[in-house]
Structure formats: C-alpha cells, structure tokens
C-alpha cells in the first residue's frame, strides 16, 4: 500500500467508509419510503404480508451485510480506487448531452449520431471522417433494420418527421 503517514491513513480510512455510509443512507431512505407506503385492509392481505414489509426486510438484511462489509474494510484495505480518466467522465457527460438532445429534438436519430461522433473523438479517434462515417452509417443501418425488418416505430422528431411524413 502506498500510504505511509498517519494523516494519510486517516484520509484513506475516511474514503473507505464512504461506500458503507452511502449504502447505509440508501437503506435508511428505502426503509423510510417503505414506511410511508399505504397499508392494505386485513381482508385483502390476509395472513400474508403488507406491501411495505418485504422492502423493509430486504434493507434490514442489507444493513447487516453493510456492517460485515465495514468490518472487512477495517481489517483489510481494499484496493485504492483511482480517479477516472477523461474519456470516462466525458462519456458520462455525453449521456447527459444525449438526454438534452432527445428532449429538444424529440428524435433519437439526431442525438445518437452526435453522441457517437463525439464519443469516437473523445476516445481517441484522430481521423475526423472515420468518426463521422461511423456516426452516420451505424445509426442509419440500425434504423433501416428496425424499421423494415423489425417494424419498430421510433419517436417523431426533426429527422423522423421527414421520413415518416
């Protein structure tokens, strides 16, 4: 392990407990939300369980497992998780761009080529025409396959409106 100093170890330990803390918070939120669920009359549920019971049971089980996980973390340091590189974060941001483009244009086939092109460039494609060709030919082929063979209708938007008429 590369960390040596006491302060560094403390920082590392704090980082390690972020995952159990996050999972605990998630479980508690689910339990809280489950408790807000309506209860059914006894004549419907009978001797079975209420809709809230099963998720609560699951999250209690989860909390026990999180306890064991924290104990394991305190005994052995798991591998240090390095920060993601540029292509990873930018790809996630491209998903966001995809959502925005679909919301604005209403058209999957406007958003997919744009994101595919940018993704290709971000992932190290140096030839512009290769990224562009890939971004145009692939969605077009998929569209034609789904439209003609599988007869799937896509949401109407800027481009599909022209095609569907």
């Amino acid at each position: 392990m590369p960390l040596h100093g006491a302060s560094e170890r403390l920082i590392m330990k704090k980082k390690l407990y972020i995952i159990p803390l996050f999972l605990t918070l998630f479980s508690l939120v689910v339990i809280y939300l489950s408790l807000q669920l309506e209860t059914s009359p006894q004549m419907i549920v009978g001797d079975s369980m209420q809709a809230r019971s099963f998720p609560i049971f699951l999250m209690i089980l989860n909390l026990i497992l999180i306890g064991i996980l924290s104990y394991q973390f305190s005994k052995t340091y798991p591998k240090e998780v390095k920060l993601e590189k540029f292509p990873t974060w930018s790809s996630i941001l491209l998903f966001l761009l995809f959502y925005i483009l679909v919301t604005i244009s209403g058209d999957l086939f406007v958003a997919i080529p744009v994101v595919m092109f940018l993704m290709g460039m971000v992932w190290g494609q140096k030839k512009l025409w290769v990224a562009l060709t890939n971004a145009i030919v692939t969605p077009l082929s998929i569209f034609l396959l789904f439209d003609y063979v599988l007869q799937v209708r896509f949401p109407r938007g800027w481009l599909t409106n022209i095609y569907y008429g």
């Binding site: 679909v102 992932w123 190290g124 494609q125 692939t138 998929i142 599988l150």
Partner: peptide
C-alpha cells in the same frame, strides 16, 4: 478494431435496443 469505433457502435445499439422492446423513451 479500434475501440473508438467499436464502443460508439455499442452505444448506438444499446440505446436503440433499450427503446425497441416497449418503444418507450
């Protein structure tokens, strides 16, 4: 095959595949 070509294709296929079953965004 360069991953800069392959994985954008996977993205396109994933998005359209996810849409196709219920035709829901």
């Amino acid at each position: 095959v360069p991953i800069s070509i392959l994985w954008p294709i996977v993205f396109g296929l994933s998005v359209i595949g996810a849409y196709a079953l219920s035709q829901s965004l």
